[in-house]
Each structure stands twice: as structure tokens, then as C-alpha cells.
Simulated assay, not measured.
Amino acid sequence: MAQTIAVQMVGFAVMLLIGYGAARSRMVTRESLSSIIVLIQKIFLPLMFVDFIYRGMTPALIARHAPMLALAAVFYPTVILAMRLVGRALRLTGARSAAFRMSFVFGNTGFIGLPLLAAIYPRTGAADLGMFVIVDQLVFWTYGVSIASGRPRRMGIRDSVRGFLNPNIVAMAVGFGLVILRVPLPASAARLLDTLGAVASPLCMVALGALCRYSHMGPVLRSRELYVGVAVKMVAMPVAAALLVRGLPVATELASAFLIMMSMPATTLVPLVVETEGGDADYAVSLSVATIAISVVTVPLVALLAGV
């Protein structure tokens, strides 16, 4: 399994390098990159979610993988507390502290987690990811948005509802609805959905590689909080969880998928929300890109150490 993950991450690294080279040669400009990222987030990634859920899930699988909801519900309070304590120990304050905490609490389940689980567990990965993301999005659009600016903010019902009506959550609802209601898609529509969904993963990684070129990562790469955050959230916590999960009555594949989700780098949604809420967007972008680059090494390492 660790070898499969390593091969997949090497493929991601190649795509990152292609994107970096495209940006360096000016084939992808900073302005066009912003449009590409919006296109991915609002069209191709949601289509990938629908396709992955529709092809990989059944009502029986949803019921069998429901324990992932409980694992995710325990994980998020734990990682929120851990990152709060790490931030205090590193003396991070204000907007920088908020961006740090968001970057290491919320993993890249869409751009990286989804294609990775699809490659490792083509039959059950959709169920695991779907259950995990339900909790992930619930926490992101409530707690995450409330701290994004670095200033105290109380979330209203309208704010929460607006957050939940984003394309990814709508796509998940559509996918689950098709599966639970057993709605058959015409063969041509299913093939088209599969084709469009397959575009998301390589396009995501190429865009992230281009983002590496345009991000001012120097100060972040020299900062201690990057490496402390990576060591705690992306390595130590998943490896420690592996020891605990082995004692629980959950399926091996479900436990392995959970550990992979725990080890994900920062999601690229964080910088967008931080910028919208008036936080330290430049710092959030640099953290997100840096953790994605580092995850090429840490995700296979976690799989090896955790015995995935």
C-alpha cells in the first residue's frame, strides 16, 4: 500500500513540476491562474465529486462506512485543540495565527485526497471520503470561517447556510442523492461525467504547481512554524492515530483511508476564505503551497510508518 501511495505522490509531483514550468515560461500567467483555479473549484472538482460518489458508492457502502463520521467527529476537535496549542507555543497571534491554524486543521481532501483514494481504493474510497467530507465541510464553513480573519467573529445562521451552498457540497448532495435514490444515468451521460471528472485531478495539480511559482514562499520556508506544523499534524498525529485505530472495531480499509485523510496538506480553500474574510491571505497561500510540496514526501512516509 505504501508503494502505491508513493507512486501516486510521485505522479502528483510530476504534475506540480509541469505546472511550475508552465508558469515560469509564462504559458500560465498569474491572472489566468486565478481563472483556472475558480474553474476547477466551481466546475471540475464538483463534477469529480459527483462522478466519484456515483461510480463508487451504494446504499450498502454508505451504511458500512458510516463509522468514518465518528472518526472524523473525534479528529476535528482534537486537531483544532492541537493547532491552537502549537500556535500559542510558537507565539503566533492575530491573522497569522488564524491562517496557521486553518492551514493545518483543514486538509486537501479534494485536490489530493480524492484522486489518491480513488487510486488506492477504487471500490470503497468514495464511501470513506464522502463520510469524512461531511464533517470536514461542516467544521470548515462554521469554525473555519469564524476564525479566518484573526479577529473574533460570531457566525450567524445566514453565514453558515451561505457557506454550505458551495459547489462542492451541492455536488456531494447530488451524488449521494443519485446513489440513495438509485437514479440510473444514461450510459452517455455517465461516460461524459467520468471524462469531465477525470480532468480535475491533473488540472488541479498543474494549477497548484503554477501557484508555487507565483507564491512568495521564501519567508514561510524559513519559518519554524511550517516544519512544526507539518511534523505535528501531517506526520505525528496520523502515526499516533494508527496505533489507536487498530484497537477499534473498524474495517482496515476504512482505518487506512482515515489516516490518509489526516495526513493531507493544507487545502487551497483556506487562502480563498482567509482573503475573503480579510485575513493574512499571502501567508495562507504560502503555507498551503509549501505543505502540498512537502506532502509528496510526508504522505508516503506516514503510510510506511503507520503500516497502511
Rank of each mutant, 00 (worst) to 15 (best):
S188C: 07
F75S: 08
F164L: 13
P67F: 01
Q137I: 09
A207D: 12
M205A: 09
T298S: 03
Q8Y: 02
P184H: 13
K42A: 14
A70E: 01
A23W: 03
A290V: 05
E31K: 07
D51E: 15
A72D: 00
R162I: 07
V299P: 06
L165W: 02
L248S: 03
V135M: 00
M131F: 10
L244W: 00
G150W: 00
L185E: 08
G110N: 01
S35K: 09
P265K: 12
H65N: 14
G87Q: 06
L208A: 13
L226S: 09
Y54P: 10
S215L: 10
V50W: 08
G156K: 00
M155V: 06
R101N: 09
L47A: 09
A290R: 10
V145W: 10
T268S: 15
T298W: 02
Q137A: 13
L221H: 06
V38G: 06
T195K: 09
A23F: 02
P122S: 03
A119Q: 08
L304V: 11
Y227R: 12
A306M: 02
I40T: 09
H65L: 11
L71P: 00
I40R: 09
T93A: 14
R101E: 12
G107M: 04
A284C: 11
R213W: 15
T276Q: 15
M83F: 12
H216Y: 11
K42M: 12
S146E: 11
M261C: 15
D282G: 12
I294D: 08
N166R: 12
A303C: 04
S149H: 01
F100A: 11
L16N: 04
T124Y: 03
E275V: 03
A293N: 04
S256M: 13
L39E: 05
V220M: 15
G278C: 13
S215R: 11
A189L: 14
I169P: 08
T195A: 13
L39W: 04
V50F: 10
F75H: 10
A22W: 00
A126H: 02
P167L: 05
M9A: 09
D282A: 13
G209D: 07
E253N: 13
R55V: 06
T93V: 13
A231H: 06
V79I: 07
A187H: 11
F176V: 05
M155I: 07
C204D: 15
V239L: 04
L39G: 04
M15H: 00
N168L: 14
P238V: 00
G19H: 05
G175V: 03
K42D: 11
L243D: 03
A266K: 14
G278Y: 11
S263K: 11
S295Y: 04
W141E: 05
L269N: 14
M57H: 03
A189G: 10
I134M: 09
L185Y: 04
I180N: 02
P77Q: 01
M205P: 10
R222F: 08
T298I: 00
P59W: 02
L114V: 02
V145N: 07
V273K: 12
S188M: 12
L129Y: 01
A200F: 08
P115K: 02
A251D: 15
K233Q: 13
P46K: 08
